[in-house]
Amino acid sequence: MLILGAEDIHQILDGAEKNVLETVRRAYVLHDRGHTALPHSVFLRFPHDQRNRIIGLPAYLGDETPVAGVKWIASFPGNLAAGLPRASAAIIMNSMATGAPEAFLEGSVISARRTAASAALAAATLTARKPDTGVSLVGCGVINFEVLSYLRAALPELATVTLFDLDRDRARAFAERCTARWPDLTVALADTAEEALAAQRLVSLATTASAPHLTTDACRPGTLVLHLSLRDLTVDSILAGVNVVDDADHVCRESTSLHLTEQRTGDRAFIQASIGSVLADPAPYRRAEDRVTVFSPFGLGVLDLAVAEFVRRTADTLTLGTRVPGFLPVSG
């Protein structure tokens, strides 16, 4: 059994944005072409506790070197007040020859980076007539910091960022991190979410909201909203937008904004495209200039697997990680 901890994962993924972007792009295209197996995620919730959850995401990604495995990720938002990460995760990878588990990876870093890569890939693919030069980040946590990092890699013109968080001190600390990391970046704080939505035509929502609380009314026409936390936008905002998803069957579940929209309308006609089909189409995509485009990625397990496989291959090359002999019983 190969064990790769957070330090190993950081050593491999820090500075590897271009590799991760390409890995995620390829996984999306393979999924669009039917080269994946992707059961619905399992949500473990607890009696009398609607806030915390643990999610299991099993997946198979086929190609010349197919991979299978599962991500087990916990989301405990209350950790933030205690100075702990909201999410913690592990990824198990199985042998495609014997089915045996053969690698155990710290998963929260991989999960955050693949989420950010997915968002940045959408921003670089669902393009406007004029390049996006700024982004508004609603929610100043780990995910949006990674999103900004990947947006900077995918959109070289990006020069300004507007921040909003319900916790003003959190937003200020986030701004300081941004300035330290990217001295050339212009950073501004918004007083309200609506001010942030109006400030830029590229918006990333990464909050811990469990129910819709925002509309897109403040967004300028032609805005792209990266709806990463999936439960921020009202049903009316979803219906008013051009909706792109990663997988309709997966995203229309668990009381996401799109699930609530499907429940109201009785169908999924409000979803216009999947990101995989857009990426597989050789023709460039131009987003609507008179409406808001909303990208809502459920977060497919195949993306975690694809990035985990990149990490494992790189770890083999660099001889990173700890190998534990005798993890599995010996036959006979």
Rank of each mutant, 00 (worst) to 15 (best):
A119F: 06
E7D: 14
A87K: 13
D217N: 04
A81V: 00
A128V: 04
A306G: 01
T207P: 04
E262V: 05
P77S: 03
A190R: 01
C219K: 00
L303F: 12
V161S: 03
R291T: 06
A283F: 12
T127V: 14
A89C: 15
R25S: 07
T293K: 05
F164Y: 15
K71L: 13
D236A: 12
T133V: 09
I271N: 03
L214M: 08
T261C: 09
P282N: 09
R33W: 07
V20R: 03
V67A: 10
D32S: 11
F164K: 02
R53F: 10
R86L: 14
D267N: 07
A315N: 07
N52K: 03
T223I: 01
R253W: 12
R201G: 04
D132N: 09
A120M: 02
I91K: 13
S204W: 00
R312D: 12
E7S: 11
T162Q: 11
I143W: 11
R113M: 14
T317W: 12
L228W: 00
A116H: 03
S237V: 00
S111R: 10
V20C: 08
G276F: 00
T293R: 02
T133K: 11
P131F: 05
A116C: 13
S255K: 14
A97C: 03
R177P: 00
V70H: 07
D249Y: 14
R291K: 15
A6F: 10
M93G: 07
R312G: 07
S108W: 06
L121I: 00
A180E: 10
V294P: 03
L21Y: 01
E146Y: 14
D246Y: 02
L44H: 11
C252I: 12
R170H: 12
L197Y: 06
F310C: 06
I3K: 10
A82F: 04
Q263L: 13
W72S: 02
T265F: 05
H31F: 02
D232G: 01
D32G: 06
T215R: 01
R168E: 11
D167Q: 13
G301K: 02
E157Y: 02
L303S: 07
L320T: 02
G326W: 02
A283T: 12
S274D: 14
P183W: 14
P329V: 00
F174C: 09
G69I: 03
A173E: 13
P221W: 13
A116P: 08
A116N: 06
A100R: 13
P77I: 03
P66N: 08
L228F: 05
G299K: 06
D32M: 02
H10C: 10
L233H: 00
R220C: 07
A159T: 08
G5P: 04
L260Y: 10
R177K: 12
L320Q: 12
